[in-house]
Simulated scan of single mutants.
Amino acid sequence: MRTVSAADLDVRREVYLAAALDSISIGRLAGLPHLTGTRCLDLGPAGSAVPVWLRDRVGAGGEVVTASGDPLPPAVLAPGRYGLIRARLLLMCVRHPEALLRRLVAALGPGGTLVVEDWHLWPDDAVLCAPSPRDATLVERCLRLLAKEILPGLGVDPTWATRAHAAARAAGLTTVDTEIHVPVWAAGDPGALLLAVDTVRHRGRLLAAGLGPAELDRVRQLAADPGSGLVLRGHPLYSTSGPAPPW
């Protein structure tokens, strides 16, 4: 297997995330009224086309600020600063998501809108079709190790998305709405390619968890090759949104 740098893997992951999720995010934001002239904060992995889409919508009188990672610079979350905040795949990756959610709500101006998008990492029964029962079992095992052992060990909360609605209400949003998008990913689709990338990014951890080198190579091939016949039920994306009080 050709050696791939960590930086290259990160870029690939950003590209695949954007391809898998941008249309969902844009569809969610397109339903919001009065974006013209709005100051927006877009948080999450780099590589997304959503900030560009937002800049077109807010126009010359608006502003789009982007940031990623945790902790966020204090100036980014100044109280009452934004008319729209969107955070994608961020809260599930921080140690205290409820606390960060409260900071995001505080950074909204009167009537400003928060949109929080996170995956519920749900590996059970995720293989819809595979070339053989053996392949299905192997892919399911890899997905389960990633979702329940590897990623939680790196600080990812696989079930945070299921708590986001209640947390948003507790943080003070006046009305909360959650949409759940459950995709289907065929081999070679951006979502399936994320699995292929993860078999490389987390290869050492997956080997330590009991998968063999040939097994990891097989999972990567199944996920990346459009002709392999693998079809996955993707992670449900919880999109939770609501306005701040008008004060």
Rank of each mutant, 00 (worst) to 15 (best):
S5G: 14
A6H: 12
L9H: 06
A18V: 03
L21G: 08
D22V: 06
S23F: 05
S25V: 13
L29I: 13
G31K: 11
L35R: 03
T36V: 05
T38N: 05
R39C: 10
R39P: 07
C40T: 13
A49Q: 10
P51I: 06
V52H: 09
L54N: 12
V58K: 01
A60G: 14
A60N: 00
V65T: 10
P71Q: 15
P71Y: 09
P73I: 00
P73H: 11
P74C: 07
V76D: 02
V76H: 02
P79V: 08
R81E: 06
Y82F: 12
R86C: 02
L89Q: 13
L91R: 05
M92Q: 13
R95K: 07
R95L: 06
R95G: 12
R95Y: 02
E98L: 00
L108F: 05
L108V: 08
P110V: 02
G111N: 01
G111M: 01
L114S: 06
L114Q: 03
D118A: 10
D124Q: 11
D124N: 10
A126V: 13
A126C: 08
V127T: 11
A130D: 09
D135T: 00
T137H: 11
R141V: 11
L143A: 15
L145V: 14
D157V: 00
T159K: 09
W160V: 03
A164C: 15
A166I: 01
A166S: 14
G172M: 00
V176P: 05
T178I: 11
T178M: 06
H181Y: 14
V184L: 09
A187M: 03
G188H: 06
G188W: 04
A192F: 09
L195Q: 13
D198G: 14
G204V: 14
G204E: 15
L206C: 15
L207G: 12
A214R: 15
V219N: 08
A224D: 09
D225S: 14
G227C: 10
S228W: 03
L230A: 09
L232Q: 03
R233M: 01
R233A: 10
G234Y: 03
T240M: 11
G242I: 11
A244P: 09
P245T: 06
